[in-house]
Design a binder for these strands. Structure first.
Lengths: 331, 331
DNA sequence: TCAATGAATGAAACCGGTATCATAAACAGT
DNA sequence: ACTGTTTATGATACCGGTTTCATTCATTGA
C-alpha cells in the first residue's frame, strides 16, 4: 500500500498523510481519521522513498575488524545502546581484518546509505586519511587517535605504564614485554612506549632480548613466552599488551612449572572476563570499552546535529585491577 | 550529483546511465564515456532512489539478544561472511535481552528497510509466532527450533547427552546439573533433557536436589555450585549447560579445595575459548556456531531467490572435546 | 467594516532513480 | 528492393514519498 491508496482509504489528501508523519499543520479530525486508518491497515511510509527526499537514513555504519573479540563487542554494544536511544540503527561491516575490505567499505559508505560512520580500525594508513577526508558524512574513530579526525581513545600509554610500574614496584628487575604489532598505534606502539617509559622511570633500560611482538591471540602469546624463556636472560615479570597474549604466556609458564607470581609476574591490558578465571587470575588494566562506544556514538550524534563543528579527541582513563598474577608481598 | 547532471557530464542520456548500472543494451562507446565520467566525478547512484523503484535494499536485519557473547558473535561472524559474499549488508539490532525491543524490532523490520531477517532469539512466545507469520520478508531463526519456520539449530539434546554420558562412563554415580532457563528451549530445556536421558540410559534417576537453574554467566554458575555443594548429597560430577556456568562452578570448587576431576568432574557446552585456559581446562561440547551463522545466511539467500519455498530445519551436529576436567582414569 | 494575519488544505512539482515505449539504425534473408 | 529481426536510443511515465505554492477560511485588530 502506498501513500495515495492509503490517503483514499483514510478519506484525506496525500498531503495530509504526509503532514501527519512530518508534523505539519493538520486539524484534529484529519489526524484522527488517519490514525484510525493506520489502525485498520497497518500502513507505514516507505523509508527509502522518504530518504530520496530528505536524505536521512537513520542508519549509522559501524566498521570493525572482527566481531568475536571481547573488547570490540563491548564497544559495539555501547554504540548500539546510545544510537538506539536516538532512533538510529546500525549498519555493521565486518572487515575480517582485511585491509582491502576496510577500504572498500569506506568507499561504500562514502556518499550513500548511512548518515554517519563509526570506525574501529587498528592500523591507519595514508589511504585511510585520503578516504576519510573525502567522506560526505561525519566520522568518528574509536580506539585510535588519528590526527584531524574525531576520536575516542584510551590512555594506552598510561595503562601500560601503570601495569608495568606495578610490577616494577614489587621488585621486578628484569621485565619482559610481549607486545602487539607496532603499526597499531594504540595497542602496539603506545603500550610499548608505556612499558619502556616505566622502565626508564625506575632506573632500568629496556632489553631487546626480552621484547617480542605477538599476534592478538593466545597461541601467539604462548609462542612468544616460549621464545623469551629460551633465551639467556630470564625475566622476573612479563607485561603483555593484551589479556589474550597474557593468557598464552601464562599457559606456557604453567606447563613449564614456572610459578606465577613467585618466579614471574604477569600483567595484561583489557581486563577480559577470561582473565578472572585463568589458571592464575590475571592482573590487568580495565579499559572502558563500553563507555568508549557510548561516547563515540554521542560524538557522532553531535556532529550530525552541527555539521563541521571542530574535531575533538576524547581520551578515556583506566583502572588497574590487581589479581594473583602480580601479588608478590616483597617490595 | 544526480543522474541527470551526471548524464549531462558524461554526454549521454539519463536512460543510458541507468542502463549502465543495470545491464541493458548499451554500446561500447557510451559505456566507455560513462566509465570515464565516473572516474572524473566519482558518481554513484543513490541506493534509496533505486530501492523506491525495485524494492531491494540489499540489507538483512539481524536481531540478537546481545553482542558480547562468544557464541553469538561467532554466529554473527558466520552470517556476515556469507552475506558479504553475496553483496548484502547487515542491519544489526541488539535487543539487549529486552523482550519488548525484540518485538518492536520485528515490527520495525516487518514491511520496510530489509530484504530478510535472521533472528537469534532465546525464548519464543505466541507473540513471536504472530509477528513472524506476518512478516513480509523471509525469516530464518538461528539457534532455536520453532515449528513452521526456517531454522538452523544445534543438536542440544545430543550434546548434553554425550557430555553427561562421558562423565557417567568414567564412573560418576551422583551427577549434578546446572542448567539454563527452561523457557529457552535449546540451551535450557533440551540440554536438561539430554542430561536426564543420559542418566536414565545409565540406570540412574535424576535427583532434583542436584539440579539447579542458573543465569547465563559465571557468577550465577558459582552461586549454583555453592548451593549444590551445601546440600546433603555430594555430587561426583556436574554437567553445566554452558561453559560460562561451568567456569563459575569450577571457580567455586577450586576455592573450596574440591579437586577436579578427582573429587568432581565438570563438563560444559559451547567449547568457549575461555574453557581451554581455565584453572582446570574444561571438557566441553563444540557446537558449530560459525557454521550455524553461515548456513542460516545461505538458507535466507535461498528463500530470497525463491519466495515461499518449503520451510526447512537444519540441525548441526557437535564434537565432544575432552580436557582435564573429566580426565579420570578409572572406569 | 475592511484589511491583515495565520491555520488548514490539496494540486502539482519535485527527489533520484528505473521501466516502458516508440522509434531509429544496422544487418540478414529472400 | 523489401521485409523482419536485433541492437541501440532517449522521452516520458512512474516508484512512493515530501515540499512548495496558491487558495480558502476563520480570526483578529483598527
Amino acid at each position: 500500500m502506498n501513500i495515495s491508496e492509503f490517503a483514499k482509504e483514510a478519506g484525506v489528501s496525500v498531503s495530509a498523510v504526509s503532514r501527519y508523519f512530518n508534523d505539519g499543520y493538520l486539524s484534529e479530525d484529519k489526524r484522527a481519521q488517519i490514525e484510525a486508518a493506520i489502525e485498520r491497515t497497518g500502513y507505514e511510509p516507505s523509508r527509502s522513498a522518504r530518504t530520496v527526499q530528505n536524505k536521512v537514513t537513520k542508519l549509522v555504519g559501524v566498521i570493525l575488524p572482527k566481531l568475536s573479540s571481547e573488547s570490540i563487542s563491548r564497544v559495539t554494544e555501547g554504540i548500539s545502546r546510545v544510537l538506539g536511544q536516538h532512533g538510529f540503527e546500525l549498519l555493521l561491516v565486518n572487515t575480517a581484518n582485511d585491509y582491502n575490505r576496510e577500504i572498500s567499505s569506506l568507499e561504500l559508505l562514502r556518499h550513500n546509505r548511512v548518515d554517519g560512520v563509526i570506525l574501529l580500525a587498528s592500523v591507519f594508513t595514508e589511504l585511510h586519511r585520503t578516504l576519510l577526508s573525502k567522506m560526505r558524512v561525519p566520522v568518528v574513530i574509536v580506539g585510535q587517535q588519528f590526527k584531524g579526525f574525531n576520536c575516542v581513545c584510551h590512555n594506552d600509554l598510561g595503562a601500560a605504564y601503570a601495569m608495568t610500574s606495578l610490577m616494577l614496584e614489587k621488585g621486578a628487575k628484569t621485565p619482559a614485554f610481549i607486545g602487539a604489532d607496532p603499526e597499531d598505534k594504540a595497542a602496539g606502539l603506545d603500550r610499548r612506549k608505556g612499558f619502556e617509559k616505566a622502565l626508564l622511570d625506575h632506573g632500568l633500560t629496556p632489553d631487546p632480548r626480552l621484547m617480542e611482538v605477538a599476534k592478538f591471540n593466545m597461541d601467539s602469546g604462548y609462542e612468544k613466552a616460549k621464545q623469551i624463556f629460551s633465551g639467556r636472560v630470564r625475566p622476573d615479570c612479563i607485561f603483555c599488551a593484551t589479556d589474550n597474549i597474557a593468557a598464552g604466556a601464562m599457559l606456557y609458564c604453567h606447563e613449564q612449572g614456572i610459578r606465577i607470581p613467585e618466579d614471574v609476574m604477569i600483567g595484561g591490558v583489557g581486563d577480559s572476563r577470561m582473565g578472572r578465571v585463568l589458571l592464575t587470575p590475571l592482573s590487568s588494566v580495565h579499559l572502558h570499552y563500553g563507555t568508549a562506544g557510548e561516547e563515540g556514538a554521542k560524538m557522532l550524534l553531535s556532529q550530525l546535529r552541527e555539521r563541521g563543528s571542530v574535531h575533538r579527541v576524547l581520551q578515556l582513563e583506566f583502572d588497574v585491577i590487581e589479581r594473583e598474577s602480580t601479588m608478590r608481598t616483597k617490595k
